[in-house]
Amino acid sequence: MKTILSTTKSKVIVVLVLILIVWVGYTFWQAYQTKPERFQGQVEAQQYLISSKVAGRIDQVLVKKGDKVTSGQMIFTILSPEIEAKLEQAKAGQAAAGAMSAQAEKGARNQEIAAAKDQWNKAKAASNLMEKTFKRVDNLYQDGVVAEQKRDEAMTQWQAARYTERAAYQMYQMAQEGARVETKLAAKEKERMAAGAVAEVEAYAADTKISSWHDGEVSDILLHSGELAPQGFPVVTIVDMQDAWAIFHVREDSLKAFKQGVEFNVSIPALGTDVYRFKVSHVSVMGDFATWRTTDANQGFDMRTFEVDARPVKPIKDLRVGMSVLLESDAQ
């Protein structure tokens, strides 16, 4: 009986020793296995800064944080009396340029043409009179009654009258023909220039009512009603969660697993335990600051850090900017 108990006890001890040996061996084996590396990323999304190229005072902000906006929806308005005054000035300049162009096209008025014709007739009558006077004086000179000086004076007066007649005739013709082609073209171009000035100010005036160019969600409002908005300063920020991606910072010795186009599974703790598929879309080196990490102090070899962008293969519901994204190196 004692022999049987001793044998049983020996067997139990042997089994326990074998179990202990197996457990110790498995523990050592596990300790020397390569553990999967975990990478933590963060969700980012495309942001749009809604601003105006016109400086002024914010009149109304028509959205609130969290509002869904669509392309073409009014976001905010700016009050700018200066632009309204400039628009009035530009329109007045356009009207003046148009009137000058119309005047150049129509030419002289009928009264101006008639006055020019009367001046020509007057000069012609004076020229005829001076011609007759010269002929009389010339006859008297031929008879020896008057001196040659009188004859020369009469001839000079006749020639001057003829020049005056020609000048009056040219003025009459100019009045009939109207403005020169070059003058008309210059007036027309000035009118176009004035119209361009009006269009420019109208464009600025239209930019006092700012609409969104994109669909998205209002993430921030930087200025409110009554505050001054500098030119180009963002007033409202919109984020488009349909254009979202995850950013990972990967050391270059692990970069081989993140080639462009590679897909992998990730988990997003904020969304529960589901697994999501992401695809690498872009890889770029980060700046020199804080991206070097020593791997071997003796050899002096440092690793750089790269920024890896990965986009979800399918849209993810309830995804938000800033959520953590976890990736195990064996989750390919």
Rank of each mutant, 00 (worst) to 15 (best):
L140V: 03
A194L: 11
T77H: 00
A205L: 15
S127A: 10
F278T: 00
P230D: 06
Y26N: 11
V285F: 10
K106N: 15
V325F: 04
G232S: 01
E263W: 01
W245K: 05
E165C: 11
A187L: 07
L222T: 05
A297T: 07
E227G: 11
Q33E: 02
E131Q: 13
M100T: 03
K317C: 02
A55P: 04
F278R: 04
E328Q: 14
G98V: 00
G196E: 11
N298G: 04
V313F: 07
A161H: 11
S254L: 13
V43I: 15
Q260G: 08
V285Y: 04
I21E: 06
S225N: 13
I238V: 15
V285R: 11
M74H: 04
V137N: 09
D207W: 02
T70H: 03
G25S: 14
G261K: 09
N110H: 03
E307V: 04
G178P: 08
V22M: 13
Q40K: 03
Q111K: 10
Q242Y: 04
Q40C: 04
R192N: 04
D302R: 12
A257K: 14
V275I: 15
S281P: 09
L16R: 10
H249I: 03
L185E: 15
I21Q: 07
S324M: 10
Q157V: 10
F134C: 06
